[in-house]
Design a protein around this nucleic acid. Structure first.
Length: 573
RNA sequence: GCGCUCGUAGCUCAAUGGAUAGAGCAUUUGACUACGGAUCAAAAGGUUGAGUGUUCGAGUCACUCCGAGCGCGCCA
């Protein structure tokens, strides 16, 4: 364990306990601008004891034994400021350097976590909204695995339901070969729109589509074959996109709506047995308490439509059931847009009412806001349609490659292309991940691809500069032992490196990747300040050895941290 | 109408109920005969939408307003 915050918190706990007597308060040690860290808890404890905060803090400080690790002093109304000893920081840095996990504690207990993300619709283009769920979901998967959870990725693709009647009929109309050619080129939009247009304009086509849905749901082999063809062609296209941007999802993670089809009657039956089902306007529904419609009447979750069909509420309930009972997940994460929060809350409530979702199993809606244009309105393309995912990716790569070429004309062309891809995709992902996911964010090419400010290129550049130093250093030794005192920049950078653990756990506590992004940005800033103030290669041997160690560890944390966000850190750029 | 979310510097964003609300961009001023200037150092910029509470302490919690966005019965 190499997190000095945790070590000091553990060491302070007995002092708090001694002062508190029975009950007591656990100290919380956190980074601070005023000192290396600040221990909170004395103020709360003072209130509990009915004593003056400052006196309590003084008692805690007197009772604490942090010899060789840190000094503590009381400041302000009763804050306990912590200043780490240089020798302690150097010790911890040495531990970090030999720790594969960079000082990050494993999650306890480890759980089976199901992460539902991306979820494009078959035979329909992915758009900018899918960018968010895909990028956030993928980062969470990497983070959860990193701290030791077992993660089950599930891509809940829209591969079932009424639209497939129209899509299959359209497939038949234009011929399988033609359709396959168009779809494998990635013209999902065109295919979908043509089908839609026919459906909207022709009643005969509507009848065909409706019949086809019945055939599909009845398991007609020929219909299923055509359906499978649509799914396969679309997935080939989606998988290509995932690979291009470095998303982990593969066909093994497919958990489309169709997969739950057989479970749907069971869902309804089990709700009936549980006595939750009511008939309302001819539909079978459940009324979870606390939801009202426009007229102020109770709002139902419909599980069986008038006429007997199931809908997405049923399918989502089946999904919960499957994830808890078959997959044995204890934590279900739904990386889904904030606009669906009411629907998901109802699904979770009904699942809880039915006893399917009960502790320790729980579901969390990892919600996110919209992507806005610079006019602060929902981002649209020039023609007014949703911006295509693939177009955004291509433009990011194009812009980044152009700028790499401009800044670095001497690099071989293939390397320019490689770096351009890493920078472009990194910038795109980082722009999404670096702001609080619940808020809408403004999509701005110039800002996300800028090489200054809180952007992926800035972080990648810091990493590339370190690699450049390490290349120039050649064979070298690193050490932190022989250096007597740390200068301010060295000290600050060391401390930042040791906070990686805290950054990871803060990030996972709220499923908010932007916390890790903020940490990495601050780390990169600390490094560039260090870089300006402290020559590495030309320093005397012990100093050089220490600074090389600092540089190496910074590179490792940047590389690992960016990796956890799904972003590559090139060796040069 | 009801519900959910958001409102912080000119702009884009941070900030577990903790001290004097922090960054970046833009603006202004500095800094390379040192490892990549795609950089760094500094200045200036705030009634945290308004108000009332709770608390030793509120951007954060509660309530009431104001503004914006999104939902609100058989699409998914």
């Amino acid at each position: 364990m190499a997190d000095p915050l945790v070590i000091v918190a553990d060491l302070l706990a007995p002092a708090f306990a001694a002062v508190a007597g029975e009950g007591g308060v656990d100290p919380v040690v956190r980074p601070s601008d005023r000192a290396d860290a600040q221990a909170n808890g004395a103020l709360a404890l003072a209130k509990q004891l009915g004593r003056k905060p400052r006196d309590v803090a003084e008692d805690v400080v007197a009772a604490a034994d942090l010899a060789g690790k840190a000094t503590v002093e009381v400041a302000g109304p009763g804050f306990i400021n912590v200043t780490f000893d240089d020798s302690f920081l150097k010790e911890q840095l040495a531990l970090l350097a030999v720790d594969e996990h960079l000082g990050v504690r494993m999650a306890s207990p480890a759980e089976r976590v199901v992460v539902d993300y991306s979820a494009p619709n078959i035979a329909k283009e992915m758009h900018i909204g899918h960018l968010r769920t895909t990028v956030i979901g993928d980062a969470l998967v990497r983070l959860l695995e990193f701290v030791g959870h077992t993660v089950i990725r599930e891509n809940h693709v829209g591969d079932w339901g009424t639209p497939f009647g129209m899509l299959i009929e359209h497939l038949i109309d234009i011929g399988e070969t033609e359709a396959a050619a168009g779809l494998s080129l990635g013209d999902l939009d065109g295919f979908y729109k043509q089908a839609r247009a026919k459906f909207d304009s022709s009643e005969a086509f509507q009848d065909r589509a409706r019949n086809r849905v019945v055939l599909l749901q009845g398991g007609d082999p020929e219909t299923l074959r055509l359906w499978k063809m649509l799914v396969d062609l679309s997935m080939r296209y989606f998988n290509r996109l995932y690979r291009k941007i470095g998303v982990l999802l593969t066909d093994d993670d497919l958990a489309g709506e169709s997969k739950y089809n057989d479970l749907l009657p069971e869902v309804v039956e089990r709700l009936r047995t549980a006595g939750l089902l009511e008939v309302s306007d001819g539909a079978e529904v459940v009324f979870p308490p606390g939801y009202t419609n426009r007229e102020g009447e109770p709002l139902p979750l419909i599980v069986q439509k008038r006429g007997g069909g199931f809908n997405y509420g049923t399918s989502d309930l089946a999904c919960v059931l499957d994830r808890v009972e078959r997959v044995k997940g204890t934590l279900l994460l739904y990386v889904v847009g904030a606009e669906q929060s009411q629907h998901l809350a109802m699904v979770f409530d009904v699942a809880a009412m039915a006893g399917w979702l009960r502790p320790p199993a729980r579901a969390v809606h990892v919600a996110f806001g919209f992507v806005l244009g610079t006019d602060r309105k929902k981002l649209k393309s020039r023609s007014g349609e949703p911006v295509r995912f693939v177009d955004v990716v291509d433009e990011a790569i194009e812009r980044a490659t152009a700028s790499v070429r401009e800044k670095n004309p001497d690099l071989p062309a293939d390397e320019q292309i490689d770096i351009g891809r890493m920078v472009g995709i990194g910038a795109l992902k980082y722009a999404d991940l670096s702001t609080d996911r619940i808020k809408d964010y403004v999509f701005d090419w110039d800002r996300m691809l800028a090489f200054e400010g809180n952007t992926a290129p800035y972080l990648q550049y810091a990493h590339a500069r370190i690699q450049s130093i390490l290349r120039k250093a050649g064979e070298h030794t690193t050490s932190e032992a022989s250096l007597p005192d740390l200068v301010a920049e060295e000290r600050h950078l060391t401390l930042q490196l040791l906070h990686f653990d805290a950054a990871i756990h803060d990030t996972l506590e709220k499923y908010s990747p932007h916390r890790l992004a903020t940490y990495l940005f601050e780390l990169a800033q600390s490094f560039t300040s260090f870089y300006e103030a402290c020559p590495v290669l030309k320093a005397d041997p012990p100093t050089r050895a220490f600074r090389l160690r600092l540089s190496e560890q910074t590179a490792r944390v940047l590389d690992t941290g960016l990796g956890l966000l799904g972003i590559d850190a090139p060796e040069r750029m």
